[in-house]
Design a protein around this nucleic acid. Structure first.
Length: 310
DNA sequence: AAACGCATCAACCGCATCCGA
DNA sequence: ATCGGATGCGGTTGATGCGTT
C-alpha cells in the first residue's frame, strides 16, 4: 500500500494557473497569510487546487520581490561558484540570490549555465587565486601537512609509487579538511589538454588522514587553487556525475606508512557534480609544484586520456 | 505556410525531512 | 520513541514558443 495522496487528485485542477486563480491565491495569502497550512489553504481561498500546487505557485511566481529571467553575469558566477561548492542544492543556492527561486536557478542551470560551463565561458571558483576563500574560516589551527618529495620527473611513472595528495576540502560546515587522498577538478585555461586540479570531492582510501584546518593560514592559502572547468570537444561528454581516474602515471614519493598501502588500487573516484562523466581510465600525466610544506598538483595532462560517455 | 526540432520554464511527482501529537 | 501529516526539495515532464528547413 502506497503513501496516501496529499489531496484528492480527481477533484483538483492541474496544469497552468489562470489569472483568476493567481488573483485568488495572491489575495488570500496577502490578507490572511498561509496560516501555516498549505493543505487547507486552497479550500479557504476558494481554489480547486492541491495545497502543494498553491505553495509552489506562491513561492515560485506570486510572492513579492520575485525576479524572473534575465540572470546577470554576476548571478551566473554566484550560481556556478555555489554549485561547485555544494552541488545541486538549488534552494540553498537560490537563498543567496535575492528574488530568485530554487526552480528558477535549477532551470537556468539546466538550460543555460551547464552549457556555458561546458563551453568554457563560465568558471567555477571555490578559492580565489590570491588565496582568499569564499567560505568562512574556522578557528581550528592548521596541522602540518605531510611533506612530499618529488624524486623523479612526473612523466617517469613508477607503478610502485603512490600518489599522496594533501588537498583542501570544504565540508558541510564550511570548515576545511585536509584529505590526504583526494583529487579534484581540472582547469584547461592555459594549456590544451592540461588541467589544473582542484579538489571538490574526494574518496579517502583506508587510513587516510583527515584534519580540520584553518583556511586563514598562509600555507593553506597557498594551497588554494582556482577551479574552473573548460572543456573543449564537449560532444563526447554526456550526463553522469562521476569520474574514475587512474593516477599510476603520476610520480610523487610518499612516506613509509603510505607505502604499505600502495598495493591498493590507485583508482580514485571523483564526483565533480557537473553532471557529465569523463572516463580517464588510461590515466593522466600530472605535474606538481611545491606549495609550502606540501606538493600540490599544478596541472594534469588528459590530452591522451580516453574520454567517453558512460 | 507547414512541419519539425529544440529551448525554455512552469508545474508535477515522489521522496526526504521536519515536527507536533 | 513512534507515528503520521505537512512541508521542503530536487528530478522530471509536458506545454509552449521560437527558429530553421
Amino acid at each position: 500500500m502506497g503513501r496516501a495522496p496529499c489531496c484528492d487528485k480527481a477533484n483538483v485542477k492541474r496544469g497552468p494557473w489562470s489569472p483568476e486563480e493567481d488573483a485568488a491565491l495572491k489575495g488570500y495569502v496577502e490578507s490572511h497569510g498561509t496560516g501555516g497550512n498549505w493543505i487547507a489553504l486552497p479550500k479557504k481561498a476558494g481554489l480547486r487546487r492541491c495545497g502543494k500546487s498553491c505553495r509552489l505557485r506562491w513561492l515560485n511566481y506570486l510572492r513579492p520581490d520575485i525576479k524572473h529571467g534575465g540572470f546577470t553575469e554576476e548571478e551566473d558566477n554566484i550560481i556556478c561558484n555555489l554549485y561547485g561548492q555544494m552541488g545541486s542544492r538549488w534552494s540553498a543556492i537560490a537563498s543567496k540570490l535575492h528574488g530568485r527561486t530554487d526552480n528558477d536557478v535549477k532551470n537556468h542551470w539546466n538550460t543555460k549555465l551547464k552549457k556555458k560551463m561546458m563551453a568554457g565561458k563560465v568558471s567555477l571558483k571555490t578559492f580565489t587565486e590570491n588565496g582568499t576563500s569564499t567560505l568562512p574560516s574556522t578557528s581550528t589551527p592548521l596541522p602540518t601537512p605531510q611533506s612530499l618529495n618529488i624524486q623523479n620527473s612526473p612523466f617517469n611513472a613508477s607503478p610502485n609509487q603512490t600518489l599522496v595528495l594533501p588537498i583542501l576540502e570544504a565540508n558541510d560546515n564550511n570548515a576545511f579538511t585536509v584529505n590526504q587522498n583526494s583529487i579534484i577538478s581540472f582547469d584547461q585555461t592555459n594549456h590544451h589538454g592540461l588541467y589544473t586540479p582542484q579538489i571538490m570531492h574526494g574518496v579517502s582510501r583506508t587510513g587516510a588522514a583527515s584534519s580540520r584546518i584553518n583556511n586563514n593560514t598562509s600555507d593553506n592559502n597557498s594551497n588554494s587553487h582556482m577551479v574552473s572547468l573548460s572543456q573543449e570537444g564537449s560532444s563526447s561528454i554526456s550526463d553522469s556525475s562521476s569520474i574514475a581516474v587512474n593516477y599510476n602515471k603520476c610520480v610523487v614519493s610518499q612516506p613509509q606508512q603510505q607505502q604499505q598501502q600502495s598495493d591498493e588500487s590507485m583508482d580514485m573516484f571523483m564526483d565533480f557534480g557537473f553532471g557529465f562523466p569523463y572516463d580517464f581510465a588510461n590515466g593522466p600525466n600530472c605535474h606538481y609544484e611545491r606549495v609550502g610544506e606540501i606538493f600540490a598538483p599544478e596541472w594534469v595532462d588528459f590530452s591522451y586520456a580516453d574520454i567517453k560517455p558512460h
